[in-house]
């Protein structure tokens, strides 16, 4: 188990979480960031990396991924540490007012302050509406492929029409005993090279391509062993399989945050606009995840919230010190 000691644990490594590292760093507070996504940038990197943003002060236009890259460069002097691809499952406040945070991957973070910059919540795999799907999770149904070796010499059914469905079909064609890709359409959009490769593999008989079809049921005793498919003409067929991997992208869920005793209003955390503190002393919420009268879900508002949050967080990290406000133009960025 990895154990990390830090001043501030930031949950969410989107633009606002990243910028919070800078504001904390100016006040000599170290940060560790945790994000469920495997990369930093939150929605910007996950949903619209190539989209232009027009309302970042000082940038008439900036590409979303470029903003994330710039933020990473801006915070680099403060040496933030990261646990990416991990979901925070438990948060506990200790008697001395500090916090212990545990992730689903076994990482434990001990911090004096917690900043939730979780955007829309955790990005989780989107699940198709199939009866008893959850019953077979971990018993043949997987939404992510962490270790492809798990599928070696096994029968695998993938479902979906996006890039990840195509990429994994191609990858698993060489590993699995049998690969079937089920797609509701008859064409694939997105990367044309991958689509062509999938059609070629089907022609060569290396994979089964089931188009214009949807999964209507899954069966098995204990472990999954059958997927029932219906085509657009209503014809039903059965595919014997060891695994089903639905790949329909990610969708945000508030997730475990809802269970930490915070005041929540419609999937957002209520905060004070003085310092974006929550009802639990030492826990702050900034960016799209918080709500207050007049809230605007804008990156620039999240940046402002990060700056004010850091001033209050200082009191938890350095209770014996007095904070004197300093401009970067006067003192520069003093790294540590």
């Amino acid at each position: 188990m990895e154990h990390i000691n830090t001043d501030i644990c930031i949950i969410g490594a989107g633009p606002v979480g990243l910028f919070a590292v800078f504001e904390a760093g100016l006040l000599k507070m170290r940060c560790h960031l945790i994000d469920v996504l495997p990369q930093v940038g939150g929605q910007l990197s996950e949903i619209y990396p190539q989209k232009p943003i027009y309302d970042i002060p000082g940038f008439p236009i900036i590409n979303a991924q470029e903003l994330v890259d710039n933020l990473m460069e801006q915070i680099a002097p403060f040496n933030p540490t990261f646990s990416l691809g991990e979901r925070v499952d438990h948060l506990k406040k200790l008697e001395d007012g500090t916090f212990v945070i545990n992730t689903n991957e076994g990482t434990e973070v001990h911090s004096k302050v917690v900043v939730i910059a979780g955007g829309l919540g955790c990005f989780e795999p989107r699940k198709p509406a199939i009866d008893r799907l959850e019953q077979f999770e971990g018993k043949g149904v997987n939404y992510m492929i962490k270790n492809p070796e798990l599928f070696r010499n096994r029968k695998v059914v993938l479902a979906g029409g996006g890039d990840s469905a195509l990429d994994w079909t191609i990858f698993l064609a060489d590993i699995a005993a049998e690969v079937t890709l089920i797609h509701r359409g008859d064409t694939f959009r997105g990367a044309p090279d991958s689509a062509e490769k999938v059609f070629d593999l089907a022609k060569e008989g290396k994979i089964n391509l089931v188009l214009q079809s949807q999964i209507t049921a899954i069966n098995g005793t204990g472990h999954l062993n059958e997927v029932i498919v219906q085509n657009k003409d209503g014809e039903v067929s059965s595919i014997g399989t060891d695994h089903l991997i639905p790949l329909f992208g990610l969708t945000p869920k508030l997730g475990p945050i809802a269970e930490w005793g915070l005041n929540i209003d419609k999937s957002a955390i209520e905060v004070s606009t003085v310092d974006y503190s929550t009802n639990v002393a030492g826990i702050f919420a900034i960016g799209d995840i918080n709500t207050y009268p007049g809230k605007l879900k804008l990156i620039l508002c999240g940046f402002h919230e990060a700056a004010l949050m850091a001033q209050s967080a200082f009191k938890f990290v350095y209770p014996a010190q007095k904070l004197s406000f300093k401009y970067t133009t006067v003192y520069g960025v003093n790294t540590f």
Binding site: K127, G161, G185
Partner: peptide, 15 residues
């Protein structure tokens, strides 16, 4: 447009 079609393609419940 293309983007809408791509996004709908990734939805399990699209029709």
């Amino acid at each position: 447009q293309e983007q809408e079609l791509i996004t709908l393609d990734s939805r399990p419940d699209a029709e």
